[in-house]
Amino acid sequence: MNGYVKNVVATIALGTILLNVHAAEKRKSGYDIMSPSTQALQNDDSQNPAMLWVKDGEALWNRAAGEAKKSCATCHSGAVKSMRGVAARYPAFEPKSKRPINLQQRINLCQKNYQRAEPFSAESSELLSIESYVAMQSRGLPIAPPRDARLTASRERGQQFFQQRIGQLDLSCADCHDNHAGKKLGSATIPEAHPTAYPLYRLEWQSVGSLQRRLRNCMSGVRAEPYTFGAQEFIELELYMTLRAAGMRIETPGVRP
C-alpha cells in the first residue's frame, strides 16, 4: 500500500470515529436542558431528594423477605459490585417466559422465584426504591442494550409505537421528541426523550417515579388512553428507547423539573 492510500484510509477511519463521537455528543439528556438550579440538585447526593429512595432501596436489599427468608444480598452479596452495569442492559430477554422484561419485572421475578415473596405492586415506593438502588450502581456507565436477536421483533414494534400517532391530539412520540425536540411546549423545553436517569425525582411529582409513569403522562397528554403499568407495549417502547439512547451515560438517581 503506498503512503497516499494509507493516509486516505487513516483519514477516513479517523473521520468515522470523529463522526461517531460527534453523533454521540449531539444527543442531549434531559439534564442538559434543565435549569442550573435543578442540575445542582442532581449533582450533589446530599441535596438530591431521590437519595431518600436510594437509601430505602439499600435497606430493602439487605432485608430478608418471603418464605425463603432470603434478602437480595443473600444471592447477589454487595450491590455496589454485583449490580454494576445491570441497569445499563435492561430491558433484556427472559428465556423462561420468552419475552423481554424490564428491570422492575426482573426484581419482581427474583422476589417471586427466589424469595418466594409477594412481588411489589407497580409504582410502589418499595419497588421504586430498590430499582433506584440497583440502577444507581450503573451511574456513569453507557446504556448498553443487549445485541440479542430475540429482542429484534419487540424492538421493531417499539419503534413502530414511537412513530405511531395516537390520541385525540393525533401525535406520536416522534412528532415531539424527534421532530420538535429543543423547542418549547408551553414554558417547558421538549426533551429528546432519552431514558438516562430513571427512576428519577420529578419536581412536578414531588416524588420518585418510573419511566412508565412518565410514558403514561405523555400518553394522557396527547389524550390517549395510557397502557397499564407493565404492559408489553411499554416494554417494547422501552427497548426501542434504550437503543435510541445507546451509549449515553446513566444518571440514576436523576432529578427533572
Binding site: 446530599s46 441535596q47 431528594p49 437519595m51 431518600l52 414531588q206
Partner: peptide, 9 residues
C-alpha cells in the same frame, strides 16, 4: 449542615 427528610408536605 444539610438535612433532607421524606415528607409529603
Amino acid at each position: 449542615i444539610r438535612v433532607l427528610i421524606q415528607h409529603p408536605m
